[in-house]
Design a binder for these strands. Structure first.
Lengths: 214, 214, 214, 214
DNA sequence: AATGAATGAGAATTCATTCAT
DNA sequence: TATGAATGAATTCTCATTCAT
């Protein structure tokens, strides 16, 4: 399509409105692979198929690429099903189960997972990244789950636990699973689905065998 | 020499064998504060009260300081009460509760927590760090907890869950709590004790209100 | 096309031959403001209201813009009243006074003054600029003034001074005034007119109070 | 002295307290020759006989080298004979003549002259340089000369001229001479001494031939 | 003629590591 | 042992210039 008759690669590709996104894609790959600090702007450029200078046409600094990456990832979350979730009457457990499975799917997508990983890794150098992530993602998602808990308690489905703390009991296991797998290569053979199934049982009904079933 | 007539601090610890440890202490402080990459060897030296060159008398490279830090932190864990824990007969729940509280205490100690944080953050650049941490810490601690679960199931205290997955349900909430607090400044007002209490209830008895208590 | 229904400025001067001049105008403004090195070709283009690429249609390099600027400023000087000044008989002092006042006026015009300032500032990088300025301006103007001096001496109006050196005594004060004001912000409240009046008195009659007037 | 037995150049030269000065010397040479912008830090290092990195041991930035250069040049001026000049009674003309000759000598020293040249050339980019030079040099020197004029007027030696303007008539010619010679290569064959002699005549007694001497 | 995306050489600065003392 | 001056590779960012459209 862009090949030239004489076989040379076209040196310029103009009016590429997709460029910033291509840069972000390249950067994400490399940040995942080597981390932010260890990735050179030149590497990003090379992977995006453009020159070093061209990167600076779209992003004023390497740091802004990181920011752009987080921003781009965050946008769709605002519109996600999750954040618009408003529980109606009735048992919140099926909904909560659904939410967990959805989160599980997202965490299984490497390019989606890469963003919070980046944020966590780079928080010391770029604390505003974590603030942004918190504001746009956590502050939207966590209240929804807390709402489910609160409602479940009010309607007599759940024990009178502290919703803010309970959210950690709900999500934490998935997070630990990711950390073990990604950082320590532990449990790579275990699927997120299995984990969620096992976890939901414990979460809702407890680890203890009820005296009745003994 | 130690006369201090001139008012300067006497140079105690000449040829002190504690030097490497002082370097590690200094490094730990700085790695916590600014991260590995952003910490200069000169900063470490300054905080340790020695010269830049002297650091290299004890550690052949900056990277080896990081390694030394993890190694030093890991040693006592091998000998810790936890890893030598062998459950006797009977209900494993009190023991498990004790283990969680002990972990909670450790996570509350910034200098102890700093090590896994470092490992997580630097895993891309120094994967051998994570391997070491896994081998020395996780591979010792996790089987103990898994053992408790397995035993609990065998003795009829616990539901027949998957022990390897269940460990994530047990520890995960504490980890998420740490991440939320440390990275996103969420829930700084919540104490680890409160979290553990809330979590233990759910963990053992489930979120659901048992039909009996309704 | 020139309808302006959309409210945008119509692009008058299509293919205008005035373009190079507009580029020079823009460049002069910016060179005055920030200096040659600190001015980007893109800035010049923006101020000239054209694209970066278009600048290169008129000037093959940034350096040639500088050259063009000096050249353009120099042309009218060759044809100026000054250079065609041929002293007639009689007292050269009124003429010399007139010349000084004219120079004073020119130095007060920022855009005119900018050219020698540029030449002086950029002489190290572009010595040919200084040569050009010398050839076209100084080598035309200085002999005229020297001629006035020589004639004044010959006709008995002036002391038998060295005309080549004396020209420095005539023009120097004005130049120092400009440097003090422009570079060091000294004497911004003093007008060139005042300076010239004060200077002419001294120049013609000396600082010393004549014995007669004592 | 520093030669090694095997003939290799010594790589390190330690505890050189003269280093900053050597860097400034090297920088001055290069700034004179090529200007500030066109001089690379690496060039300075090479000429100072050290590595690029070593320059940054002594100066935190290229800009600070420039600043240091001006600062170093300025220091002795505060203690110079000129600034401590306090006229006693009597004819100020011999003193003024002496001052002019002293200034003339200074302007003839290329390394001394280089500083104000630098300041003038770089004022746009580093206006604080000009402020410093003004504060430390001009604001000390100019009042002294103005004082001479004022005193000369008060004691009846000088015409009632404006001292602030007259200082331009006194110094300006020397400055123009320098500019013509340095920038435009005009009058390289004329010595500063000749200029001063010619100028002093005009300055004190005027260009005009007094009617008496006609 | 005109555009502006793209290039790439170049320069300042940093810092882990070395080594003369 | 200890120092800290010195090194130099590495990296970010800039901008004059080119050229496909």
């Amino acid at each position: 399509m862009a090949e030239m008759e004489d076989g040379r690669k076209p040196k310029f590709r103009r009016r590429a409105e997709a460029r910033p996104d291509e840069v972000l894609d390249a950067a994400l790959d490399l940040f995942i692979e080597k981390g932010f600090a260890a990735t050179r702007v030149e590497d990003i450029a090379a992977r995006a198929g453009i020159s070093k200078g061209a990167v600076y046409l779209y992003f004023p600094s390497k740091e802004k690429i990181l920011e752009g990456l987080v921003q781009r990832a965050i946008l769709p979350i605002a519109n996600s099903a999750l954040s618009s979730l408003r529980t109606i009457e009735g048992d919140p457990r099926p909904i909560m189960t659904g939410v967990l499975k959805m989160l599980g799917q997202r965490l299984a997508d490497a390019r989606l997972l890469a963003i919070p990983k980046l944020v966590v890794r780079e928080v010391l150098g770029y604390p505003e990244l974590a603030q942004m992530y918190r504001r746009e993602v956590l502050d939207r998602v966590m209240p929804v789950i807390e709402g489910l808990i609160t409602q479940g308690i009010a309607e007599g489905y759940f024990r009178p636990v502290d919703p803010r703390l309970t959210i950690r009991s709900i999500i934490g296991p998935m997070m630990l699973h990711v950390v073990l797998a990604e950082v320590f290569a532990i449990g790579a053979d275990v699927s997120m689905e299995q984990l969620i199934d096992n976890h939901i049982t414990i979460l809702f009904d407890g680890l203890s065998l009820s005296p009745a079933s003994r």
